[in-house]
Write a protein that binds this DNA or RNA. Sequence first.
DNA 1: TGTTAGCACTCTCGTTCGTTGAGTGCTAAC
DNA 2: GTTAGCACTCAACGAACGAGAGTGCTAACA
Lengths: 341, 341
Amino acid sequence: MVLDERKLRILSAIIDDYVETASPVGSRTITRKYNMGVSPATIRNEMSDLEELGYLDQPHVSAGRVPSTKAYRLYVDMLLSGARRPIGEDREALQYFTERITQMEDVVQTAAQAVSELTHLTALVMMPGQPTMRIATLQLVPMPRGSALLVIVTDSGIVRDTVIRVSDQLDMDALYTISRMLTETLAGHTLREAQEMLDAYAARSTADQRVLMGVRNLAVQMARQSSVDSVSVDGTHHILNYPEYSDVEKARAFLSVMETRDKLLSVLRSGSGTVTVRIGSEVGLEELGDCSLVTAPFQLGGGFGSIGVLGPMRMPYDRVIRTLSTIGQAMTEIFGSEEIS
Amino acid sequence: MVLDERKLRILSAIIDDYVETASPVGSRTITRKYNMGVSPATIRNEMSDLEELGYLDQPHVSAGRVPSTKAYRLYVDMLLSGARRPIGEDREALQYFTERITQMEDVVQTAAQAVSELTHLTALVMMPGQPTMRIATLQLVPMPRGSALLVIVTDSGIVRDTVIRVSDQLDMDALYTISRMLTETLAGHTLREAQEMLDAYAARSTADQRVLMGVRNLAVQMARQSSVDSVSVDGTHHILNYPEYSDVEKARAFLSVMETRDKLLSVLRSGSGTVTVRIGSEVGLEELGDCSLVTAPFQLGGGFGSIGVLGPMRMPYDRVIRTLSTIGQAMTEIFGSEEIS
DNA sequence: TGTTAGCACTCTCGTTCGTTGAGTGCTAAC
DNA sequence: GTTAGCACTCAACGAACGAGAGTGCTAACA
């Protein structure tokens, strides 16, 4: 059964009002605030129908109505498909985001911050693992006091560095020669291969073991860190601003789920290649109760990452969708061009 | 007036019990749990004296007693000075911390995480600004698709990188030559000097402006970021576990103070070169109400940073002090040696 | 003089019980 | 199909009240 025009308008008004006020919506409120041109009694009849159809819930008989999961689903589907889709980019979001990006390594963190700041919700970002990442370059940069900074760059543009101790006879040129040799040997190999090669070489070589082991250890660590999907979270504190979480127990439950990265990863991984909205039980984290998760994809080195927000089912879906898809696209571009400023 | 031995024991017991249970302590509790060898009535007389002296407060006449700020002050002073000082390192903390340190840039973040995880309180770390930081080395590392990773290392061991676009005719050797030239020119100069030199040079040179501008921009950005003290925060969510913050309004007030870095900086900067405990109004953030701030210093490039925890006045000061001073020392060592693994 | 038992007293906390008010569903009239 | 009217329901709020924890005081005791 499809809803007629007036029922849709009423349902939409109820959702809008509830998203704004967080309290059950009565028939008089609808007539006053959203002047429908009909009396409260008429609205009541329609609301009664909508409740029968499963679009509205009634906390108790003398309260107003609250949108059900099904209502949000309908509302969001209209947003995502029909002509109402929030087209166009969120200029504010784009500006906010690009202004703050500086370091390559910070893109994910910055994106999460931007999203949580703009939506006042908790932001989640999933970075896809890069198990087949290969070494592109490797360089030793001199540092004071017999140390050197080892920088490894991979073909997907991931940079990692660590400080290792080296013989203090090695000057900039000597370090460059070693870097060049190591790059020639290891470039094009995966991190695990590099580890094996270095182990084998170190065993029968008399060269400076500290450099070799330093490279080996960083490669191992990079392989470990980068082969699995990772997730970062920002803006968890926003949840306290919602009356749904004025109960400290609920707030704590929410925050403790945010600490368990595994669960977050599993729900973020299941996102498709487009903007996805999951409502209530669709989220798949029953500890959270009634939450919604909106995610947008971004591309990184052949895989898909996901950026999203998690919050009460009562959220301004249109704005959230627009912000997320804008930021997602911006991230895809950044990772694609591998250039920042 | 100095407290006699028994009064001290009773006061100490009250503090211990209150730190543990968060509820006012009655005379019977003291006799039962901390067997004092005297009856509740005697304890009551002593408690009455302690209240008169300002060491105890009574929320209302039929509740037990609660330690006052003055009581915590006495308790902490005994910890910090006398023979009761929590000597020795916190092995657990040291292990937890060193296990997790990998990247040089992450030391601060890792330290904050370790502290908040170990103490179950909110951790704060202040990094002192390095306004006179000088360039030590500068290197361009080849990356795919006409890009290069620019790495600047300063004499205090700060590493920063960014990706810049370069002519795709530049191979590893060419980039090294440029790096060498730039290093020779700029090493030993401050970041601001480097910026001016590059501006002047770029104006009259026909060399690849993109490289010069890339270096310039990173130098400017490093100067901006590093000349001011910075602060990072971790574990704000722990506050919800304390009944003092079961009121959502209070929790929100706390979290919003944690968002205002300026205020945090000003209180962290005022720490001395030793472990400092500030209790209640001594903290200097009246928005927080009754909090305590414990800080330990660490050394970084000639300046002093500060690592601390912020939580309810009711906190296990001995453990917190031991953990913080251990981590502070570990950080000093790490920054001093400029080596990690 | 310090310690202790006994007891009246105080005050919070949780419960119960009306009262109030928002909002509904139904009926009858338009 | 719409609307006014009205009885009805139920959460929220506040007052009243009993239970319990803990105190201060007094008088007896070592």
